[in-house]
């Protein structure tokens, strides 16, 4: 079936099986590899992207539900080539190790900051539940607070 939606601000139409996970449409049909496959069961968060601003696990999101919606991936998080505050904070704190899960974490964090601009440690514990096997959580927490700071400075 034909499905039309916005991807990182651009209108596109794809012709695929409507039950195909958005993840594979984004990765293989659209060639945007920043959104990762980790489990295919919505359990690890590596495939997190935004649909209409909400953090969504795209491995478990049938593409037909994206019709008319706006999808943002890690590639669309930076604005005019400038790193998004979350990406900047991740850089400042040198968070990634293997880096595979990090786009998902950054997308989840960006969604968190949209709704809770100054998250407490408790907010971070409650909301950021993705899995990082390198266990970079210690730096991630610092980076999330740092991203909130960068955001505040910009406002």
């Amino acid at each position: 079936m034909k499905i039309s939606f916005k991807i990182n601000g651009e209108d596109i139409t794809v012709e695929v099986d409507g039950n195909m996970p958005l993840l594979w449409v984004v990765r293989d049909t659209l060639g945007l590899k920043g959104t990762k496959f980790g489990c295919g069961k919505a359990a690890c968060g590596a495939c997190t992207l935004h649909v209409d601003g909400i953090a969504v696990r795209s491995c478990s999101y049938a593409v037909r539900f994206a019709e008319g919606k706006s999808v943002t991936t890690i590639e669309g998080l930076s604005i005019k080539g400038e790193l998004h505050p979350v990406q900047q904070a991740w850089t400042d704190e040198i968070v990634p190790q293997c880096g595979y899960c990090q786009p998902g974490f950054m997308m989840a964090t960006a969604a968190l900051l949209n709704r809770i601009p100054n998250p407490t440690d408790q907010d971070i514990d409650d909301n950021i539940v993705n899995v990082c096997r390198c266990a970079t959580y210690y730096r991630m927490r610092k980076a999330i607070h740092r991203a909130a700071e960068i955001n505040n400075q910009k406002v």
């Binding site: 996970p21 919505a42 478990s60 969604a111 809770i116 409650d126 539940v129």
Partner: peptide, 29 residues
């Protein structure tokens, strides 16, 4: 994953019910 009710019964800021649950069963996941 520590999923919670949230203020509107739809989950938390970055961990909404809709983060994983869509409008139909996902038979793959």
């Amino acid at each position: 994953f520590g999923v919670q009710r949230g203020v509107d019964n739809h989950g938390l800021a970055a961990l909404q019910c809709g983060s994983c649950h869509q409008e139909a069963n996902n038979l793959l996941s």
